[in-house]
Design a binder for these strands. Structure first.
Length: 259
DNA sequence: ATGGTTGAAACTCAA
């Protein structure tokens, strides 16, 4: 079973590429971030035509996350507890029932947090604390769980082509990297790192300054697996070729294959 | 040091 995550940076602007990618890679479950539209504006019918059930937690203009699944989606949770703690649509969770049992899947869009030291930076760190609290409780269930999305964290130097360029960016601060380590230490496995820790694998290339052409990328989109899900991990990868398509997102899909 | 680009929606912000 294939689970993928993709920050599409706008549903309307990306619909052609998104449908093309869904047809070619046909993942069972897809976590989308930055859909940048309301629930009503999300083209659920077009995904339904490809055999997907849809859950959406949208917002006008910014943020917004969604789940697509060829299997039924149950027990949908919109927003990271405490739900009243922010107005941003950044967290959506669903229980996916498959032939091999239930699997909880989270589509998450972590705050960017720039500039360092600003209100946005403190919001980022507080949000990551809330995610850590949520994950700690959820892991007590000892069930298959995948927390997938745009973490907006460069966890290690090997996750950037030029790590020195990022030392003044919120994505590579000691605080953000520590938050990632705390979440990992709960018992979650970074699937791509587990399959290939050689570095040089990126999931985001800025639109500016020819970053894609220079392969000036960073790895910030992650699929984190509970022990019960990690036991079933067979493959993980990045669909970097879609970054060369017309009107691309600045992110590319990341995926895992579970037995 | 600066500027470089994109999306959504509004004449600017977030990334």
């Amino acid at each position: 079973m294939r689970i993928a995550t993709w920050n599409i940076n706008g549903t309307k602007a990306r619909i052609d590429g998104l449908l093309r990618w869904l047809r070619e890679s046909s993942p069972d479950i897809v976590c989308l971030q930055e859909i940048k539209c309301t629930d009503d504006g999300f083209p659920a019918d077009q995904f339904g035509d490809l055999g997907y059930n849809v859950a959406v937690h949208g917002q006008k203009g910014f943020n917004g996350v969604a789940l697509l699944s060829k299997h039924p989606i149950e027990d949908v949770q919109k927003g990271l507890p405490p739900v009243g703690a922010d107005e941003h649509a950044r967290f959506l969770s669903g229980l996916i029932s498959t032939a091999d049992g239930a699997l909880r899947v989270v589509s998450a869009y972590m705050p960017n947090g720039n500039p360092i030291g600003s209100d946005k930076f403190h919001y980022k760190l507080a949000w990551l604390r809330r995610l850590e609290d949520w994950a700690r409780e959820e892991l007590k269930r000892e069930e298959p769980l995948a927390i997938a999305g745009d973490y907006n964290i460069i966890a290690e130097p090997i996750d950037a082509k030029y790590p020195d360029n990022w030392v003044t960016d919120a994505l590579y601060t000691p605080e953000a990297r520590q938050a990632f380590r705390r979440i990992s230490a709960l018992g979650l496995t970074d699937a791509l790192r587990a399959v290939d820790d050689g570095g040089g694998i990126y999931t985001f290339w800025d639109y500016q300054a020819g970053a894609w052409q220079r392969n000036n990328g960073i790895r910030i989109d992650h699929i984190m697996l509970s022990p019960e899900a990690a036991d079933r991990l067979r493959l993980a990868g990045v669909d970097r070729h879609v970054r060369a398509w017309e009107k691309p997102s600045d992110h590319v899909p990341v995926w895992v294959e579970l037995a």
